[in-house]
Design a protein around this nucleic acid. Structure first.
Lengths: 337, 337
DNA sequence: GTGAAAGCGCTAACAT
DNA sequence: ATGTTAGCGCTTTCAC
């Protein structure tokens, strides 16, 4: 005879323990009053059988799902795992469970991921960025759950948002650079088609420079590959073309670190002859020969507050959204004089 | 009047389109024959309403869930995101959806995460490592779904496994080091209480050395913090204590990279006076001043094959498991002479 | 090609 | 403190 595998149900536990399904359910959820005696019986039966409750049925019956969707563009970026960590640790003691989705920076995939997540009727959704297709905005707006957009606050918000102004972050860096006396400035970054936050930093950066009468003299951009290696290559390329530059602003710390290593190898005097800065304040910078100037993107704090907003809101009856704008902090490091 | 938010049901689409719920369901799932005319009506109605199907109800009714649980110890490690990426991309075109869980290297949390996942009745489960509490093994063994343990194949398997032998990886590195003529060897790693794979590499490494009559002369270990910075510190410490060492084996590339940067700064002749090696072959190594010797852990391939096993197996009737042992490749780089 | 009835495994609400 | 009934929103099965 074939071993017909059926997964266990409440009914099995009920029969094994001689207690009604309803009471078994109560025991397993610690809900309502159950006498210690029956409680023990039920627990014993469930354990011996190896019963694992079916949350699908539970969720359908109770109309409650303890899931929070978290949608980010990438996991290889090093910055998102940190945000996810902060979200997880806050949700840990709320009974909510994060479920991650990755969009690969493409709007089409974002739409699919959001649709998929909403079809599981999560208690809330956290997603990176403010730029979404109309279809996504519509789904989210009518989902009837808290939606928190994270990382960025420069733009219209669907419900709630926690982040920094990347435009402002770019401006701040420009101001620090100008104040330090650098004047011939190069920019190195990703091709920014879908990295809106990098684009906003660039815009803020160049606007602030322009106000001081300074133009960005040269630029390099890359796509894919090892960011550290790309940082080296791009730096070699831009300095080959424009040796007069006295400052290089990188759109992230990894390429900045690559650039820093390159400059040090070339014997370029940092921060005297040339200054360097990145963005994100990644942990890696601690181990480099020299501390790269950067700006803290408040990643952990963003994750924490986003999770708190989702956890605090009640499934029904919430209305307004809050927008929390954190202030990025400049870390001068050793590469701005 | 409060705006009572109810999420839309099939019934709403049915009423809006004047088609029975059943037919609406068929259209939305592309199942069965539906006339183009009604099909169009239904699609239009669903779209205008903004209907998102309720997968909870669907899963309960059909007894099918398109979810695959993926349980890893950490996301900040840089190695797991890569595995997850490979899993995602294979599952992408199978209709299955990965759901990630993180254990933080603790058995307690692993048990919670696995239990939680099983309670959603996923189609399969992929989890890192072979070391699990008895409770976890029991749950998985009786879950009636494909279970794939990844990364490691040194030990008893629950169902299927895809990975490398870390013991063997350690041995291979030891052999390469001996063959290159290094004799006074130091080891730097994590405190290995719960990192079983690092422990196995260490065991294979020291066993192979012992067979050649060589003992590990000194060791350093760390926990938490920036791995790159720790690599520097540990290297400074171990060389301070044991300046006679001529090879340093690091349990991962990040601390190895830190050690490499330190040695270069100290003007130590690499790989002549001293050799270095790490483990994982992370992308970052491409951008360093010198290519650290390492060993490829086959991360992408592991993710790919694990996903294929889960995707291929049929919900019912599967029995045996397969164990795929991949062979790690030594990358000599520039730090072994 | 379309529809009606039954039920997936649980929990809310109401008995007792 | 425990049990009973109804039903969550879908899909399966069977009828037309």
């Amino acid at each position: 005879m074939a071993d017909i595998r059926r997964t266990l149900t409440l009914r099995d536990v009920s029969e094994a323990s001689g207690v009604s399904e309803m009471t078994v359910s109560r025991v397993l959820r610690n809900s309502g009053d159950v006498s210690p005696a029956t409680r023990a019986k039920v627990l014993a039966a469930a354990k011996t059988l190896g019963y694992v409750p079916n949350k699908i049925a539970g969720a359908l019956a109770s109309q409650r799902v303890n899931l929070v969707g978290v949608v980010v563009p990438s996991l290889s970026n090093m910055v998102f795992p940190e945000v996810l960590g902060a979200i997880s640790s806050v949700l840990e003691d709320t009974g909510l469970q994060p479920v991650f989705g990755v969009t690969g920076y493409t709007p089409e995939k974002e739409e699919r991921v959001v649709y998929e997540m909403l079809s599981w009727r999560p208690s809330g959704l956290i997603l990176a960025g403010l730029e979404h297709d109309e279809a996504v905005r519509a789904m989210l707006a009518s989902a009837g759950i808290p939606v928190v957009e994270i990382m960025d606050t420069d733009g219209p918000v669907i419900d709630s948002a926690v982040g920094i102004s990347h435009t402002r972050a770019g401006r701040m860096m420009a101001e620090a650079i100008i104040a330090a006396g650098y004047r011939r400035i190069g920019f190195l970054g990703t091709r920014m088609t879908n990295d809106h936050r990098a684009r906003k930093r660039f815009e803020g950066f160049s606007a602030a420079l322009a106000e001081a009468g300074i133009a960005i003299e040269d630029q390099e951009s890359y796509e894919g590959g090892s960011a550290l290696a790309k940082g080296r290559e791009m730096t070699a390329a831009i300095l080959g073309r424009s040796p007069e530059l006295d400052f290089l602003y990188y759109s992230n710390d990894m390429i900045g670190a690559g650039g820093l290593l390159y400059c040090l190898e070339q014997g370029i005097d940092i921060p005297g002859r040339m200054g360097l800065a990145g963005f994100n304040d990644v942990e890696l910078l601690d181990g480099l020969p020299m501390r790269l100037a950067t700006m803290d993107a408040c990643r952990a704090e963003i994750g924490r507050q986003a999770a708190e907003i989702v956890a605090a809101k009640h499934p029904a009856g919430f209305i307004g959204g809050e927008v929390v704008t954190l202030t990025p902090r400049l870390q001068r490091g050793d590469t701005i004089r």
